[in-house]
Simulated scan of single mutants.
Amino acid sequence: MECVFGLVGDGFAIVAADTSAVHSILVHKNNEDKIMVLDSHKLIAASGEPGDRVQFTEYVQKNVSLYQFRNGIPLTTAAAANFTRGELATALRKNPYSVNILMAGYDKEAGASLYYIDYIATLHKVDKGAFGYGSYFSLSTMDRHYRSDMSVEEAIELVDKCILEIRSRLVIAPPNFVIKIVDKDGAREHAWRQSVQDVTTASL
C-alpha cells in the first residue's frame, strides 16, 4: 500500500512518501524514510520491493557522488535522471529492480524539475507524478488543484489534501508520511504527517 507522489511549483519541487515498511500482512516499522537526498539539490523518492529500493537508490546516490568527486562538478537533475534510467534499463535485461522513482531537483539554469522513472526504465519529465495505490487518489486531487505557479505554502496545502484523501479512501492507508522540498536553497526535509489523528483534526 505504498504512496509516493510529488509536484513542481514556482521555483521548487516537493515530494512526499509514506513511511511504512510492510511485508504481506505485517507492518515492520512506521518510520522508514523512502526519500533519499542524492546531493545538495536533488531528492529521489522510491517505492517498490524494500531490498531493491534501498540497494538501487544507494547505488544511484554513490555514483552521483562519485561523478562529482571525479569531475569537480555535480550532475544536473536531467543527467542524474538519465543515468538512473540507463541503469534500470541495463538491469532490466539481467536482474531487474522492482523499484519506481520520482527524482526531484533544482538547477541554476533549468530551475526545479521532477522526473518519473518506473521499473521498466520509462523516463518522463513531469509537473506532477505518483506511484503506488495512493496514486489513484493523489493524482486525481492534483489534477483538480495543481497549478504550475503554486507557492510553497499552497503546495504543502495540496500535499496535505492528497494525504487526507489517501487516508480517507484507501482501505489500508499508511499512517505516516514524510515531505521533502528542493529549491535554490537546497534539499531538505519539510515535515512529517503522523498518525490517523491528523484526519480527525483536519475534518474538524
Rank of each mutant, 00 (worst) to 15 (best):
A104M: 09
G111I: 06
D127C: 00
G132I: 04
M103Q: 15
A130T: 05
K128S: 08
S113H: 08
F131M: 06
G129H: 02
G129Y: 02
G105R: 11
S135D: 05
S135F: 02
D118T: 05
L139T: 13
L114V: 07
L139G: 00
I101H: 07
S135H: 01
G105K: 10
A110N: 15
Y116L: 08
F137Q: 01
L139N: 14
M142P: 03
S135E: 02
Y133N: 04
G132N: 09
I117C: 09
Y119A: 13
S138I: 00
L102S: 09
D107Y: 09
S140M: 06
T141G: 00
A110S: 15
S138D: 07
I101F: 07
M142A: 02
L139D: 08
E109Q: 14
D107L: 04
N100G: 14
A121I: 07
K128R: 14
D127P: 00
D118W: 05
K125A: 14
G111Q: 12
M103P: 10
L114F: 13
K108Q: 14
Y119M: 13
A112Q: 09
M103F: 08
S140P: 02
Y106Q: 04
S98L: 11
A104P: 11
A112F: 07
V99S: 12
Y136K: 05
Y116R: 05
G129E: 04
V126M: 03
K128N: 01
L114C: 09
L102R: 12
G129P: 01
A110K: 15
T122P: 00
D107T: 08
A121L: 11
F137P: 01
